[in-house]
């Protein structure tokens, strides 16, 4: 088990280096610089922090020196990487007075909260919808969910978000659409992220459960005198969750991308918002750090999925316990 975890961490570090290198290349290849695009209050989030004037040549020189932009590229890259791993990230271009670590510390919890709530809601909804569809397999109710599911799966987060804002915010005035002043403000963002995920996930749950309920060991359950309830909750659910969990993993990556859109749309100051403004202002240190923290988050969530899988499947659990 320990070996398994160590190997897992090793893979994560390799993946992280790869991600950071590609990010660095793309970032440097993108046209424009922070001095033209950022600051001066043109774009970006105003956290009440300082900015650099483009018109002062001396300030520009000092800026370049302070952020090591006069060093060769590999030194810059190494600086970002080492800074991230040792948590000495320094400050960003945009917010020279706030350490990036503190900036991430302020925004990250919001993002992860939205993400976790969204995935939890999506999983619960998918299990319920998938189960109902499976029990009524091939009925009109089942076919209806196919329609809804394919609709939901083909509409992106941000379109769903607009509809939700229109319906619950503009027409019925039930929920606020912008801001983060209280729990109420997070309902629409979470729902907007969860709904599109439900589409494919509930179908998957349905198929998985139908297959489980038609498997041979279900005949045994009935032969022992079990009814539908015993078959479904005693045997079917857990076994159909196994394949279901494997599709939750890949959803996580798109989920994290979703937070970028959703935070932008609902005006939530999360990591996604920091990331978007950093990339549009070419705030190199912040792009590097926020991308890497996103990567770490996705990898950790994927590992959690694997651990859940092991906990549900005794075959994997026992194999891991033996250290394989």
């Amino acid at each position: 088990m320990l070996l398994y975890v160590l190997r897992r961490i090793g893979y994560m570090i390799i993946a992280l280096v790869a991600v950071s290198f590609v990010t660095f290349l793309l970032m440097r290849a993108a046209p424009g610089s922070f001095l033209e695009m950022g600051s001066g209050g043109v774009v970006g989030v105003d956290l009440g922090l300082g900015s650099v004037g483009v018109h002062d040549p001396q300030a520009v020189q000092e800026f370049i020196h302070v952020f090591h932009l006069d060093k060769p590229w590999y030194e810059q890259y190494w600086g970002y990487l080492w800074g991230f791993f040792t948590l000495h990230m320094g400050t960003s271009f945009e917010y020279p007075a706030t350490p990036t670590l503190q900036l991430i510390g302020q925004t990250f919890p919001l993002t992860i909260m939205i993400a976790i709530l969204a995935i939890a809601l999506a999983v619960v909804l998918s299990i319920i919808l998938g189960t109902l569809a499976a029990l009524r397999a091939n009925s009109w109710a089942d076919r209806g969910t196919v329609l809804v599911a394919s609709l939901a799966a083909s509409i992106p987060h941000y379109v769903v978000a607009v509809f939700l804002m229109l319906i619950f915010g503009v027409w019925f005035h039930l929920l606020p659409v912008v801001g983060q002043a209280g729990p109420k403000y997070f309902i629409l963002p979470v729902v907007a992220m969860a709904l599109p995920m439900c589409g494919s996930m509930s179908r998957y749950m349905r198929n998985s459960l139908v297959e489980t309920m038609n498997s041979e060991y279900m005949v045994t359950v009935y032969a022992k005198g079990g009814g539908l309830r015993a078959a479904l909750f005693g045997h079917g659910m857990r076994n159909s969750l196994l394949p279901f969990i494997t599709v939750v993993g890949p959803q996580l990556a798109s989920l994290m991308m979703g937070t970028v859109y959703i935070e932008q749309m609902f005006g939530i100051l999360g990591l996604g918002k920091v990331f978007t403004s950093a990339s549009s202002t070419r705030d190199y240190p912040l792009i590097m750090d926020s991308t890497m923290i996103y990567a770490v988050l996705i990898m950790v969530m994927n590992s959690l999925v694997d651990i859940c899988y092991g906990a549900l499947d005794p075959r994997i659990r026992k194999a891991q316990a033996k250290g394989r």
Binding site: A223, H235, N239, P314, R315
Partner: peptide
């Protein structure tokens, strides 16, 4: 009425003891 099936591996739930 008790029933025994042909292939015990398939007729037992793999995830329960």
């Amino acid at each position: 009425i008790g029933v025994i099936f042909q292939n015990p591996t398939a007729y037992l739930n793999p995830t329960k003891t």
